[in-house]
Structure formats: C-alpha cells, structure tokens
Design a binder for these strands. Sequence first.
DNA 1: CCATGCGTTCCACTGAACGGAACACGATGG
DNA 2: CCATCGTGTTCCGTTCAGTGGAACGCATGG
Lengths: 267, 267
Amino acid sequence: MSITDDAWCTTTPKRHLSGDDHGSALKSVGTALDVLECFAVDTELGVSDIARRLGVAKSTAHRLLTTLVTRGFIEQDHHTGLYRLGLHLFELGQLVQARNEMRHVALPVLRHVHQATGHTVNFGVPDGPDVVFVERLHNRDGLRILSHWGRRLPSHTTSSGKVIAAFNAEAYAARVASGFPPRVTGTVRTHADWERVVSQARHQGYAVSHSESFEGTTSVAVPVLYRKLAVASVSVFGPSESIDPDVERLVPLLTAASRRVSKSLGA
Amino acid sequence: MSITDDAWCTTTPKRHLSGDDHGSALKSVGTALDVLECFAVDTELGVSDIARRLGVAKSTAHRLLTTLVTRGFIEQDHHTGLYRLGLHLFELGQLVQARNEMRHVALPVLRHVHQATGHTVNFGVPDGPDVVFVERLHNRDGLRILSHWGRRLPSHTTSSGKVIAAFNAEAYAARVASGFPPRVTGTVRTHADWERVVSQARHQGYAVSHSESFEGTTSVAVPVLYRKLAVASVSVFGPSESIDPDVERLVPLLTAASRRVSKSLGA
DNA sequence: CCATGCGTTCCACTGAACGGAACACGATGG
DNA sequence: CCATCGTGTTCCGTTCAGTGGAACGCATGG
C-alpha cells in the first residue's frame, strides 16, 4: 500500500460546538447522532430520558431509537426496556482503528517502549481541541486508572495535548477556541497558561503533566513530527511515584521512539 | 456494580435485513446510517460514489456527509476531497467494548488461555445470525491473518458460531433465517449441514472449523453458558498446522476456561 | 480547448418527520 | 383493591425539513 504525499495531516477538523448549523445540516440525522451522544454520558437510558435530554417529544425519541436499533447502532434490553450502545458501533470503531495507518507504523515502536519501560504507553492523535488515544499498551497501573475512561481528553490537561499543540498551530488554536475548562487540579486555566506551557514544551521537545487529567498520575509525552508538524504523540503514563523518578531516562527513550515513527512516516 | 438477574442474554436482536421498514423508520436517518455502512466496505469514498451506491441525488449524499462530518462520525481528506470513517466512531466503539460486562469477567480467563497455549484467543458473542468478537488476544499468526479483518463473521463459518447456535435456539434460528452464503471452502451450505454440525457441537460440547472463514486456519470453540444458554464463546485460532495437533489438549483447557467464566456470570 | 469528472451550492416542491394524544402495561401506595 | 404515576409504544394530522435537479467552479485529460 503506497503512502500518498502528505497523508498524515489531511483530515478536516469538525466544528461541532454550539448550534451554528449554518443551514446545511439534516435535523433528524443530527438528533439521531445526538441520541448516540447521550449514551456517551450514560450507559443505559430510556425513551423518556432521551426525550427530556434532547427536548423532543417522546414519540420522536422512540422513533429515533427504533431506527438506530434496527441498524444495530443501539440495542434494547428487553427486560428493562432500556437502551444502550450497540455492537455495530464497536465494529465500525474497530475498522477506524484498524485503518489508521499511523497507528500501524507506530505499533512496533510502542511495543518496544512498553517493554523497555514497563509503563503504560499511549499513542495520541490531535482531533480539534482534544487528543484521541488510538492505541494504549497498559500495564496493571494503567489498566486500573484508565480502563473505564474514554479515549478523548482535552489537550490542555494532557502532556500529549500540550506537546502536539507545541508543534501544530491548528491544534493549538482549536484549544484556544474551546477555552480551558478545569479538570482535576489542572494547571492550565487561561490562554496565558496555555501559551506558557506550550512554548515550554516547544523548547524542551517534550511535555510533562502532573495530576492534570487524573489525580496522582504523571505523564510524559513527545511529539511525532511529519514535516515539522506534530501529527501524533507518544507518551508514557502512570502513578506519579513510578513515573517521576524515571523522567530523565524516559525522555530520550521516547524521543528516539518518536523519531523512529517519524522516519517511518516517510518525511 | 451489581449484576441484575439475567443480564447476559437480554438484548433484542436487530432485524436489519431487506427493506421491510414497516413504517417506523426515519428515512434520512436510515440513509445516513447507510452512508456509514458504505465505509464498512471501502475505506475511502467520494460524494458521487456514495450517491450512486445509495441511489440518491449527489446533493443529498453531500448533505448527509457534511452533517456526519460536523459530528466527527466521518472525516474528509481535504486534499483529495474523499471521505472516510471518523475518530468519533472509534471513541463510541471503545465505549461499547469497555462497557461489555461479559468481556470484563472473561478477560483474565482469556489471558490465561492465551499464555497457556500461545495461540490466538477470541471471545465472541452472538449478534443475530453472526458472531462478533469483542476481544482478541493474538499471537503473531493471528495478527498476520486477522489484523485487517472485521470483527463480525457469519455463525456458520466459525467454530464459535456453531457452538453458540448449539446452545442458543435464537442464534440458531437467526442463521437459518439468513441462509448460508458460502465463504472460503465452507462446509455448511444447507439447512441440513447446519443442523448436522450444530447437533454435533451440542453433543461434543465444542466445535472445530477447518478453513471455513480463512483458508488454512483452524479454530476450536467452546460455549460460555448462562443458565444452559450460550451467551458467548471462547475459542482459539491459528494456522491449521499449529492448531490441529493440539485439539485434544485444547478442548479440556477451553472447557475449563469457559466454566470459570460461566461461574463468574453468576449462574 | 472542449468534454467529463469531481465536490459544492442554491431553490422550489412535497412527503416525511414532528408533537400531541391515546394506548397497554407494571409498579407503586393509599 | 383501585387509583395513580411512570414507563414504552402506536396512531394521525400538520407543516417544515429533506429531497432531487440544475447550475456552479474547478480540476483532469483526450
């Protein structure tokens, strides 16, 4: 499979935030997707719950749900009558992961870092103002902390997000546009904070986060560059007491790994 | 987290096949989901491709795509203009996997089987006439064979499907209703074949497949029972030459594993 | 240099998606 | 034990939102 010229930074970021649908949006399709979004928050919901949440009639919610059920995007528990996300979403999601070229080329490198350090290793890609972790190799600590968490985190609360923003103006700007909602004990709360930590990451070539997404954890991230542009990040993550003493050793290891991935991207 | 009385067999199977929408289907939502389905077949498609495939106007396809793009379900390559599945689907899919209770209780057992045998281990659940593999622990062989394949396989071409149908009348019937499309050198082509292999699996307590889904591979599966009903399967998989000599040893190992999972389900 | 393909935009028509009301069921509790 | 409240589900008339077709700007290539 041949890699096209610049295949690593070519996806158009979605706008999504706030209801400025500007005309070219299908209403029923939009609310159908909103239904799915409801289940990103709660695992199980009833027709009435969703109707309330979306501000539509119960009949409308029911109609949306049944169409989603017939396509396998949602399944209904036929004891409780409640609805939840369906297996078909899992299938499609797996397709997305399997087709991610960058993840493929990075995987062997990630495995090496994982074995060399024993830490949880993450591979994140920028998506608007967030980072989505498309691969995770976790040890027991990571499993304990992350297993029930989603794959998307705001860039200003992760070392990966900061280091990507440091070498990717679009990602930087997207986070600015979305503001800096505080998370646990997040250090970044203002545009000035953001500028500071990002430029520090730019000079260092890596970023560290202490308890910014999860209390008591530390992560260290380096960017994966493609033509001077950050298209991904490699990071390790874990309880602060196991990561902090290692940072000095981890940074060069991660940097080498990142460079290997960058090379494989063909830049 | 408490497990409700019969939480393991309570999802309503979707109907999906053939256009008998019987009235309660949202047309635009339906075609939007059809758009996503297009990308289950091809990784990248243009507006015109999709319009042709769905038999709608180009403008309609474009409108559907843009709404899906704004929600992150699809992304557009802004060099080629082509569309592909978006990261948000990956996120939702991961949620589905993470919330699958059965997978959670099975995981440690699967890991044990994986280490004890060195083979690729699959954990499949019935979904209508198919089996969806919600967890895979692969060795190098499995990675080579499966890495680019989806997670859903028709039940009559897999040991997992056969052994689930053997102890799950609903899954059995769903496959009958969907017919027996041939795959590689599939042995099951008629209702009679199906009845034969399934009843054999029922008597043996396990099922074996030779080159039924993938040429030159063998898989061995046992059911995970919950109150005498198959709610999942544990299977090992690999090149025939590495699996076949081991079958005698694998069956009791898998059976023991399956029983441990069943116990954990609370039946 | 025109012909053909693409992705995108606009607009008038109409059928499809909406909300409200009524339904059947089960769980509560007076 | 009946009344009340909640659920998920069904039906139907109104109207608005989704449709297809035509036109656009831009590439490609014969």
